[in-house]
Design a protein around this nucleic acid. Structure first.
Lengths: 144, 144
DNA sequence: CCTCTAAATAGAAATGATTTCGTTTTAGAA
DNA sequence: TTCTAAAACGAAATCATTTCTATTTAGAGG
């Protein structure tokens, strides 16, 4: 567990600090995505000192390194999700309970090539995310 | 011209006020996407009084009504684009010159159904956007 | 084990895009 | 033309996120 995360951090060229490991542990245990502040509130107890900016900074770095993934939320706040799927794929995120489900890569690579060929441009990244309500939430009609 | 926009506003159940028409005109003339503040700065001259909140509010309402479309930008600021394509489609946005190119609908509808079927959830919306450099910008190596 | 240095963190303060609020104005139906 | 709900004003507030400088620490090298 710890060792896995430490290894992942090293592989990303980042020091395996206790706080980073704690962030990864907590997010991995999380059933869905979480906000920086939520994580901070829960992690504060485990450290005598832990700044909110540290959580922000690490989440961003970890997401940039591909260790975590970021959720694009309609309310434009930041949310992160621990995703161990190393294949190229996308996410279906529940706006109610925050569950995240993997979506296998679809035809996007082909689309990228198509765009490159037709317009001569270069696709640097793409965003594909399905928003909705997962099975449970759709039944209950819950909203968050 | 004006009439088209007035009609579109009416169709969306919105009053055709001069400011809304001006926003639509300006965005239609724009070659790419623009931020609320940029639009406000340019529109201020045409009105003796025009508040920035008014521009924000209208852009949001117009985008919610589908008259405009919103760009998802890595810097998390708001940008809007005038898009007359009424078919379901997506966008390729240039991060450098802000040009927006249409992408015809790909297999996403099928993917939505697949997700619904497999997980029992309900897909409310999806985000698909390709980010990159358009032909011209890729050649020049420009960045903004 | 120590030492040392670049990297990481603290925490208060700043930032700045976006939103809110109470008031005033206006589009457009009657 | 009148009237009312919708729209706009604009100053002020919000608040998530970032910056900044001083302090601490992981971990490579001895």
């Amino acid at each position: 567990m710890d060792q896995r995360h430490a290894t992942a951090l090293k592989a990303a060229g980042m020091k395996a600090t206790p706080k980073r490991l704690a962030i990864l542990e907590m997010l991995e245990a999380e059933p869905g995505y979480a906000s920086p502040e939520e994580l901070w509130k829960r992690l504060k107890d485990r450290f005598d000192r832990l700044g909110l900016p540290t959580v922000y900074r690490n989440l961003e770095e970890l997401s940039a390194s591909g260790v975590l993934s970021k959720v694009i939320h309609p309310n434009r706040q930041l949310y992160y999700y621990f995703c161990s799927n190393r294949e190229h794929h996308h996410h279906f995120v529940c706006l109610s309970c925050r569950k995240v489900e993997d979506i296998p890569a679809c035809g996007i690579e082909a689309l990228e090539q198509e765009v490159s060929k037709r317009n001569g441009g270069k696709v640097l990244s793409h965003i594909l995310q399905l928003n909705g309500l997962c099975g449970g939430c759709a039944d209950n009609g819950e909203k968050r």
